[in-house]
Design a binder for these strands. Sequence first.
DNA 1: TTGCAATTGAGAATCATTTGCAATTAAAGG
DNA 2: CCTTTAATTGCAAATGATTCTCAATTGCAA
Lengths: 165, 165
Amino acid sequence: MTIYEERFSGYLKEKKLKLTPERHIILDGIFSFHRHFDVEELYERLRKNGEKLSRATIYRAIPLFIESGFIKEILHCRGKASYEHVFGHEHHDHLLCIKCGRIIEFKDDKIEELQDKVCKRYGFKPVEHRLGIRGYCKRCIAIAKIGGGIYGLNTIRNRRKSRNC
Amino acid sequence: MTIYEERFSGYLKEKKLKLTPERHIILDGIFSFHRHFDVEELYERLRKNGEKLSRATIYRAIPLFIESGFIKEILHCRGKASYEHVFGHEHHDHLLCIKCGRIIEFKDDKIEELQDKVCKRYGFKPVEHRLGIRGYCKRCIAIAKIGGGIYGLNTIRNRRKSRNC
DNA sequence: TTGCAATTGAGAATCATTTGCAATTAAAGG
DNA sequence: CCTTTAATTGCAAATGATTCTCAATTGCAA
């Protein structure tokens, strides 16, 4: 039993919830993959792995994983929620391209420090934080330059087409 | 013409977009209301005001307002996006107490600066950003010290009911 | 005034997420 | 092992925010 499994089963017991095979499968799926994921991706990955379970079960399990601190939701894009696992990983923040949807991770200790300072200033005990910057990524800027500038018509049209984030 | 109308019309012209009566109505609607709003609320408010325009037009205008820096998206809860206007208001970030729900606004220029630096590092052009720190506020920490601990069952249950927003 | 690309409204379409329900099952206590 | 019971599942239908389609309209540059 991995440390996550142990911790998760403890969490469930405490809440009088059941450790079902499905939840086990989902947990493994989450921790066997080290990138952002959304429900559909997770579902398909598990399916390809031969697992049998339904989307609904995953949707129903997500809040449990969030609440127990295993995953957290990161920025919404294209009307879809994305998650990443958190347990045992270093914290980082995100740049989200509102044109192509790309997510760039970054980490900046100075920013973290300043956040702690702010918390101290307010007598606030931080548990987690989320910093997301939306804008245009390098590649989309380059493409836009050919087509007439970052804020050209193309950009706006494309953003609309791609369900602006 | 108000200063935001002027600025918005400049923005549109630059992008070869049109300043339609509908966009004007939406702009006024946004700035005549000083709280968070979602599209449905804005739509109904304008309707009650006797304005004739469709939801679709509002949805289509939102990206323009975001991109031109007039509003920003503040949270996605239960599948719905909320916005607040920004123009003429200083930017601020949030401390969110996960026990009592209090929101404390703060501003830190140093953090903003560092964010810009990060963007430069990645060749990223920021449009807007969001920083939210979740944790426990001063008052709740004080209460917890007397009572039974920060993580009361109610807290956890309520968080689940509200879908971890 | 004209030409035309941008915009609009209305409702249909989309698509992620949620829910109702009947059948199944984990887990606690015999 | 057996029973009991509330939790869980899968499926499909429902929901609900957002986007799209398209014909008709309109802002605005020339």
